[in-house]
Design a protein around this nucleic acid. Structure first.
Length: 717
DNA sequence: CATCACGCTGTTTTT
DNA sequence: CAGCGTGATG
């Protein structure tokens, strides 16, 4: 039985207006902490309560998890049917539609999705195809190329424009990059591949060009809501336009001050353009903040007050009292880590739970130093953002065995799995793939390759595995079990840290249980990758500290928030290449981070005096210092943390026998060519000296792998 | 094919 | 500094 909701007492007037608003286009400008999610949840509940069929309601969010959580909340609030509301990301909706209608954009419905690393791999493999006049020319690496092509796609602009705008150092090779871009597009087409960008672009095309599909969808969705609208790009805005064009029942919610996805073409101006997209748009502003104390809000308001362009007004809060935010110059990065550990221990001693605390930063690697210190001090933490579970080698290897069956044309996965066979490398795997294609050989008959000899005997086992996987009665669960049996020996051979990797692979078993078809299992893995740490049920969640990139912390809140604003190395403008900060976006990033805090906010930075990272790569400052300098000083307390003289490590140092000896100009306990062991990477050979406390070690087992490792983590073998 | 030495060069964030 | 490409060697 559905509960009756007393909307008037649960919502403030502006929220109530948004929830109860009649049909028609609505733009909700919702400041940080203003109950945006709450409003959406109540609106879903309200729509269902008043008789809208759940399937006719569409809730587009930034992550699928966010959608799921909102729908669960709505279901608990009123009516269990809220769980049947369609919710997800633009990408997941696009995929759902394209799996049925891909032929309308010239694809088979069984196309494969390229994740980011696949995309880079394809691009990389195409570089030799563009004949460069001179090898001497500086050419971007695969990651940069992927960024450029992706941005061009998202902005729907020529690559050349993106290069001119943002990658000045590569203007000379712009024609080659453009050429590469077209090769990449052609490759995707012939091999039935779509990257993340293609999903939404194809969806947009489908809606734009196919009247029937457009009509079908826009009729199906009687009410559409879009969260985080400030982070949508032009393509997504057009998708919204088409989806809602029939009924016009569209509500978008966002905050231009929190737009931090410009790297993928997002533009907060979408918010402002919305009324011109839909005539008679009703605008509702949520300006009351329920999250933060007044001193925190004063700081965040002042911070955004510096912005050149800004559409939302200042927020107000009724939460009086509370501590002023603290800004600490810790001088060094290690000092920053020590400060946080000390502070957290104090808080815990006072009875605060670790769950209440989060540490936020801009880039995943900014927390490395802190993570080391937390581990030393036995403070448990979970980290979000950065490292992708799905993109680690063993997971990709594993899933590749299933991917080749869904899309036989999938050369990337074929190369992956063939190279895992003994004595088959890049060259041979390409020959085999060509042969299979030419002769139209089914996957399970790989071993029939004419070149198969004693050395390639492993192909037989691979063929057997694939024939089992093709069997009609195979479920995703059984497939995972089969591949597991086949792949585990390879894993053990290839990686010395296989226990950890094996455990991660086992996480795939329960996930596979939820699917009937291999294809949808793989789709979901790409669009909703599981986090690297096993998901723990909320009830039994351990008390842990949260570390997160600012991007991954969006929409969340904690009583205590630390922000670590690491100085990044940047090339000074005196060099041929310099990379200045985008201060406007950096400020919004800072704003998003700071507005996560409910009660206490501590911002730390390691100081302008930080030494250069290496000779020409200076730490030329970050946005924080300029923002802080421009703020009224009474908004925060400024402290100068003491410089830690003793680096506070060394307690757990000794591993192996260390007898120092001198080389030409460095002193090292290790000699070149010496065998060493590392707890995570296994055994390797010392290749060269790289720093006073580091050697480069070559690991044969994990493929071609050179790492720079500290002496203290190595043990002589 | 697998291993290894060495020189060059410069951001990051996510679906 | 450290990741990556190149090219030499077994």
């Amino acid at each position: 039985m559905a509960n009756r909701i007393d909307y008037e007492t649960m919502l403030n007037p502006a929220q109530l207006e948004a929830v109860m608003a009649a049909d028609g286009p609505i733009l909700v400008i919702a400041g940080a902490g203003s109950g945006k999610t709450r409003t959406l949840v109540y609106r879903v509940a309200r729509l269902v309560e008043s008789g809208s069929p759940p399937e006719s309601i569409l809730l587009l969010t930034f992550t699928r998890k966010a959608a799921q959580e909102m729908l669960d909340r709505a279901a608990r609030l009123s009516d269990a049917r809220c769980r049947f509301v369609s919710g997800g990301t633009f990408h997941s909706l696009a995929l759902k539609v394209l799996r049925r209608h891909a032929e309308a954009v010239g694809y088979d419905n069984s196309f494969t999705i390229l994740d980011r690393s696949d995309m880079e791999e394809v691009i990389h493999s195409l570089i030799p195809a563009i004949q460069m006049q001179k090898a001497a020319q500086r050419f971007p690496k695969r990651g940069t190329l992927a960024n450029m092509l992706s941005k061009a796609a998202n902005l729907q602009t020529p690559v050349e424009a993106v290069i001119l705008e943002e990658y000045g150092q590569f203007v000379e090779v712009a024609p080659q990059i453009e050429h590469l871009g077209s090769l990449y597009a052609a490759y995707k087409r012939t091999h039935q591949l779509m990257d993340y960008d293609d999903l939404i672009i194809s969806f947009q095309r489908l809606l734009r060009e196919n009247r029937e599909i457009r009509a079908e969808l826009s009729r199906q969705y009687g009410h559409i809501m879009v969260d985080e609208y400030q982070d949508t790009n032009g393509i997504q805005a057009e998708i919204v336009k088409w989806l809602a064009h029939e009924r016009q029942n569209i509500m978008v919610v966002g905050d231009d001050s929190q737009s931090i996805y410009s790297f993928r073409g997002a533009n907060y101006r979408n918010m402002l353009d919305f009324p011109s997209l839909f005539q008679k748009t009703k605008i509702i502003k949520l300006e009351q903040n329920y999250r933060s104390t007044q001193p925190i809000l004063a700081l965040t308001n002042a911070l955004m007050g510096q912005a050149n362009e800004r559409y939302t007004k200042c927020l107000f809060t009724s939460r009086s009292g509370g501590d002023k935010p603290m800004v600490v110059n810790t001088k060094t990065e290690h000092g920053q880590a020590l400060l946080i550990c000390r502070y957290i221990k104090e808080q815990v001693a006072k009875g605060r739970s670790l769950d209440d605390v989060a540490v936020l930063f801009r880039a995943a690697y900014h927390s490395f130093e802190l993570e080391a210190e937390l581990t030393r001090q036995h403070i448990p933490y979970v980290k979000y953002g950065g490292f992708k579970f799905l993109e680690s080698a063993h997971i990709k290897d594993f899933l590749a065995h299933m991917r080749v069956l869904v899309n036989r044309d999938e050369a990337i996965s074929w190369i992956r799995i063939l190279r895992l066979v003994k004595n088959v490398g890049l060259g041979k795997s390409q020959t085999i793939i060509e042969w299979m294609k030419k002769e139209d050989i089914s996957p399970d008959r790989v071993a029939a390759w004419p070149g198969t000899g004693k050395r390639e005997g492993g192909l037989k086992a691979l063929g057997e595995l694939l024939s089992h996987l093709t069997a009609r009665e195979t479920t995703p669960r059984k497939a995972v079990e089969r591949v597991m049996a086949y792949y585990l020996p390879i894993l053990k051979e290839k990686f010395d840290d296989y226990p950890r990797r094996e455990k991660e692979l086992e996480q795939l078993l329960p996930m596979a249980d939820r699917y009937k078809k291999m294809g949808s299992f793989l789709d979901d893995l790409v669009l909703e990758p599981p986090s690297s740490t096993a998901d723990v049920e909320p009830g039994q969640r351990r008390k842990t500290l949260t570390l997160s990139t600012v991007h991954s912390a969006k929409g969340l809140e904690w009583p205590v928030v630390f922000i670590i604003w690491v100085m990044e190395g940047r090339f000074p403008s005196s060099m041929s290449y310099s990379n200045p900060l985008n201060l406007e976006e950096e400020r919004r990033l800072m704003y998003v981070a700071a507005t996560r805090a409910k009660d206490q906010l501590i911002i730390s930075y390691p100081g302008e005096e930080s030494p250069p990272i290496w000779s020409s790569y200076q730490r030329t400052g970050n946005g924080l210092s300029s923002f802080i300098a421009a703020l009224p000083t009474d908004l925060f307390s400024h402290e100068c943390g003491s410089t830690p003289t003793d680096r506070d490590r060394g307690g757990d140092v000794k591993r192996g026998d260390v007898d120092r000896f001198k080389t030409a100009d460095r002193s090292s306990p290790f000699s070149q060519g010496q065998k060493v062991r590392h707890p995570a990477f296994g055994t390797g050979v010392v290749s060269r000296f790289v720093a006073d406390n580091k050697v480069e070690v070559f690991f044969k087992k994990a493929g071609r792998k050179l790492l720079h490792l500290e002496y203290t983590t190595l043990e002589k073998v």
